[in-house]
Design a protein around this nucleic acid. Structure first.
Length: 906
RNA sequence: GGGCGCGUAGCUCAGCGGGAGAGCACUUCCUUGACAUGGAAGGGGUCACAGGUUCGAUCCCUGUCGCGCCCACCA
């Protein structure tokens, strides 16, 4: 006996264990050796993270695809693993040390600190995997990888060394985005521009003559960053700006610093902005850096790695300058504090002309949240331009396609304007860069120190002392190799041969550039193949009001909480049902609740089947079913199966979920089981009919379990087990085949059952509208119907009596006095309700309906009488409209007859 | 500034050239033996606005208004 209620927690544990024992999700199961492979690589979650709602969506969608393809017989590899997530993880561990008041990173030193991180990884690395399993993710867990495990690290080293040898990786001294909090360089993508309210300060710079004597003239510059003026090495004006033509070539004496710097002409200067004269600080601004290059200006760095003023002992700063004592006192101040001091000093000197409020975008670190500094350092870069060109070509050629398609445009736009990728990070947690320096600035890139030594020795003509670059690589550098490094690349493994290139990548559109683009570039360059053929990009999950979820706002929806409350199946189905392509998902608990109800509904339908002796018969042949009702239900199921499959093939998860939902609830439960009740529970029913109906119901529940398995794996696996009890060699549902109900569609059955359904609906509607008490049984009269309809109605007599609450069914040539008359597929059914129904109201109702029908006919006539329409519209459209007009006209005729009967007799 | 997308029932959203849909919410009725996490019935929409293309526009085009997101931008 099935339990009265479905208990998700117990079932999830039991079913999960059964899958694990069977090794159901292992790729390359022997029986599938000849099957076509299907492979998805998981977007590796942060090893120290925990499952958030975005993961839940992302992995639900992947799991739906994997289970669907597995049931279609493919040899599925869903490759799992985790990412070391450089900055994020290092940050977590550092914070933890601080909270525990333990020695910090620098005190510990590199080796000891890394030990702490590895310990933390071991401790928390299993958490997210366990959480993915709770969601039902059917990954091949035996193949789990980590971006810093041995094999993947080798792949990273080899890639770095090879790309360096090819000239695609190089070292360069230029401005980078510097994060003063983490004291590391970050890539352009890790910088977020934040609209910030600030000021525009106008400073007067005094113009000097050849001998650096004041001329009395000034030039006014506007700046949002007063503190950087200490590093100014020029003032630029537009060559065509008449206001300044006389000043070009002259010099100004930089206030506070007393450094003479030139006024140069450069088209970078925009006469419309500020004063048209712009101070140039090559070491602290990307644009100024370029201007500096063009004019041979010095780049004077005035900040240290923490974003504090670096003046004392700063040779570049002191050279050719004579700083005022107040200026030197700025040393060591944070840039924000220094800014205020500089403004104050300039004001004291009477050089502050005015202050204007100004809103502008300020770069912030996406992880640290602090203001990013353009900073002059040596870093490693990948010249991604040539790689990008190939990636663009692959997408243009359709080797990889995007779903939804419009993401292609975004992809094209970014790759077309791509800049070199800064890949070195001044962190400890990550892949240490395989580069060694000698004492004379020689750089040797090699797979290991011995090779580097060899290279150095041959370059220098003898052994030299080498020091390894301390920096590590950007996390995304190793992620970019994920689709093939996890399969064993650079070794030519059987897995690589069988499952690569992978089929589908499912990920959030927020990491299109970070990850997807880089995988495509690296994949093409290193393996000569695009790493996947389809990229499905889903949107963000937001809270019920549409706000972005964040810890600080306190509006995060915890998927594990939802799983505990409603079950994993309910959460999964909800996410699938809401996953309309290209739209953000707004998720609140009541959505999950409604789909939990759906799970309950299916559970109860199965209980009903059990209570009514519906047992699976392995010999049941659906195509041989005789009863109209069963043939109808089987036909509807066939349609649902094909709708779901079509939708999934197009990555329309929401449509697939809706089609399955509609069939199970609105067809199978609402009508099939209800219509079958008289057969199952009535007296004197033909035993053969009853038997066939029982078997058909059991069969369809089995098909429903299959149909819903990709969405609700736990519940359906449990039902499969319950229904299959005692059957030998049935195996697990998750390894069973996708339903094949082709050929079961049946239009005759649809005509008959469809009529029945409509008739019952019409009667119920009329009863309700005329306020017939729900418990009252009333007679039904079929008026002047032909033999076919009469037979039909007689065949369904018991069902009609029961579902429409009728006392009897009569066949008459005329409608009884004072009755409500219904039109059902061309037949007239009357409910004699004298004394109950308000005659005048019924006349009103019919008149209203006649009016509506007339309106329809008028509209259709308008079309059909339009010569242009008939001439230009496609034949089948015209024909369709004609048919509609005819049926509306017939309907109007019947309504009028009904009205006549009512009014004549009334 | 450049790009992408969205404005359809109270809410969340499907539909995207020929009859306006679903779920939730709401109203009324029903504890009938699968299910009240349920059943039955019902109300509710100039498909943002204005032009255009078309025999025909919620759907295609243009513009306007409103709302998101991405990229670039510290004068």
């Amino acid at each position: 006996m099935m339990d009265k209620t479905f208990d998700p927690a117990a079932v999830e544990a039991r079913v999960g264990a059964a899958w694990e024992t069977e090794g159901a999700f292992r790729a390359g199961r022997p029986e599938r050796a000849g099957a076509e492979p299907y492979c998805i690589v998981i977007p590796p979650p942060n090893v120290t993270g925990s499952l958030h709602i975005g993961h839940a969506l992302n992995n639900t969608l992947q799991d739906i695809l994997c289970r669907f393809e597995r049931m279609r017989g493919r040899d599925v590899l869903w490759q799992p693993g985790t990412d070391h997530a450089g900055i994020a993880t290092q940050m977590v561990v550092e914070r933890q040390l601080m909270e525990r008041q333990q020695p910090g990173r620098r005190e510990l030193g590199r080796e000891a600190f890394l030990e702490k991180v590895w310990a933390w990884k071991e401790e928390s690395g299993g958490a997210i995997v366990g959480q993915l399993k709770r969601l039902g993710a059917s990954c091949d867990w035996s193949r789990e990888r980590f971006t810093m495990d041995e094999g993947l690290s080798e792949a990273v080293l080899k890639t770095f060394v090879d790309l360096h040898a090819q000239g695609l990786i190089y070292r360069d001294k230029r401005l980078v985005n510097w994060d003063p909090k983490f004291q590391t360089a970050i890539s352009d993508l890790e910088v977020l521009q934040v609209e910030t309210k600030g000021n525009l300060w106008y400073f007067d710079y005094p113009v000097v003559d050849e001998a650096d004597g004041l001329t009395g003239e000034t030039i006014t510059v506007a700046t949002t960053r007063p503190e950087t003026m200490l590093g100014d090495t020029a003032v630029a004006v537009h060559p065509d700006d008449k206001r300044y033509t006389g000043l070009i070539g002259k010099k100004v004496l930089l206030p506070l610093v007393r450094r003479a710097i030139p006024i140069v002409a450069d088209t970078y200067s925009d006469p419309e902005k500020g004063t048209g004269a712009v101070k140039i600080t090559p070491a602290h601004d990307f644009n100024d850096f370029e201007v500096g290059r063009r004019h041979g200006l010095r780049a004077i760095n005035v900040l240290d790695e923490e974003g504090q003023m670096l003046l004392a002992g700063n040779e570049a700063f002191l050279q050719d300058a004579d700083p005022e004592p107040e200026a030197l006192e700025l040393h060591g101040l944070d840039r924000a504090v220094a800014r205020k001091r500089v403004v104050a000093l300039m004001e004291e000197k009477g050089l502050l002309l005015k202050i204007e409020p100004n809103v502008h975008a300020v770069p912030h670190g996406d992880r640290s949240g602090v203001v990013i500094e353009p900073y002059l350092t040596d870093q490693w870069y990948v010249n991604v331009k040539p790689l990008a060109e190939r990636a663009l070509q692959a997408v243009r050629d359709g080797e990889t396609r995007f779903v939804p398609e419009n993401n292609e445009k975004v992809f094209f736009q970014w790759l077309t304007n791509i800049e070199p990728w800064c890949i070195s990070r001044q962190l400890w947690w990550g892949h240490q860069i395989p580069a060694w320096f000698d004492e004379d600035g020689g750089i040797y890139v090699a797979l290991n120190e011995q090779e580097a030594q060899a290279k150095a020795a041959s370059a220098r003509g003898g052994p030299v002392t080498l020091r390894r670059d301390e920096d590590v690589l950007d996390t995304w550098f190793s992620s970019a190799l994920w689709p093939f490094s996890t399969l064993g690349w650079p070794e030519a493994t059987p897995e690589l041969a069988r499952y690569y290139p992978t089929n589908t990548l499912v990920t959030g559109k927020d990491i299109l550039f970070f990850w997807v683009a880089r995988m495509i570039m690296m994949g093409l360059h290193l393996t000569d193949k695009a790493p996947f053929s389809t990229v499905y990009l889903h949107a963000l999950v937001r809270d019920a009001t549409g706000a972005k979820m964040s810890k600080s706002k306190g509006n995060v929806v915890d998927p594990l909480g939802l799983i505990e409350q409603y079950g994993a199946d309910a959460l999964r189905f909800t996410l699938a049902a809401l996953a309309a392509p290209g739209r953000d998902i707004k998720l609140g608990p009541n959505q999950v609740e409604s789909y939990r109800n759906f799970a309950t509904k299916l559970w109860n339908a199965s209980r009903f089947a059990e209570m009514n002796g519906c047992r699976l018969d392995p010999d049941f042949k659906p195509e041989a079913a005789k009863a109209v009702l069963n043939r109808w239900a089987l036909g509807e199921a066939a349609r649902a199966v094909s709708e779901v499959a079509t939708a999934l093939d197009a990555y329309r998860f929401n449509d697939a979920a809706a089609a399955a939902y509609r069939f199970v609830w609105n067809i199978f439960c609402d009508w099939y089981l209800e219509l079958a009740k008289p057969v199952l529970q009535g007296e004197g029913v033909d035993p053969a009919l009853k038997n066939e109906t029982q078997k058909s119901i059991a069969y369809l529940i089995d098909q429903i379990a299959k149909l819903l398995h990709p969405f609700m794996p736990f519940l359906t696996e449990e039902l499969w087990a319950i229904k299959g009890e005692g059957m030998v060699d049935r195996g697990l549902l998750t390894l069973a085949s996708w339903p094949d109900l082709s050929g079961l569609a049946n239009s005759e059955a649809e005509a008959e059952v469809g009529f029945l359904v409509e008739l019952i609906s019409e009667i119920r509607s009329a009863r309700s509208e005329t306020n017939v008490p729900a418990g009252a049984q009333i007679p039904l009269v079929l008026v002047g119907v032909d033999g076919t309809v009469r037979e039909r109605v007689q065949r369904w007599q018991d069902t009609l009596l029961r579902l429409a609450r009728l006392s009897e069914i009569r066949f008459e040539t005329d409608a009884p006095k004072n009755s409500v008359q219904l039109l059902v597929r061309g037949s007239v059914a009357a409910l004699p309700l004298e004394g109950i129904v308000d005659l005048a109201a019924e006349v009103d109702r019919l008149r209203k309906e006649a009016g509506k029908t007339e309106g329809e006919i008028k509209k259709l006539d308008g079309k059909l009488n339009n010569a242009d329409f008939v001439a230009r519209a496609p034949e089948e459209v015209v024909e369709e409209q004609r048919e509609r007009r005819d049926s509306e006209a017939a309907r109007l005729e019947k309504i009028r007859e009904a009205l006549t009967r009512l009014t004549d007799q009334g």
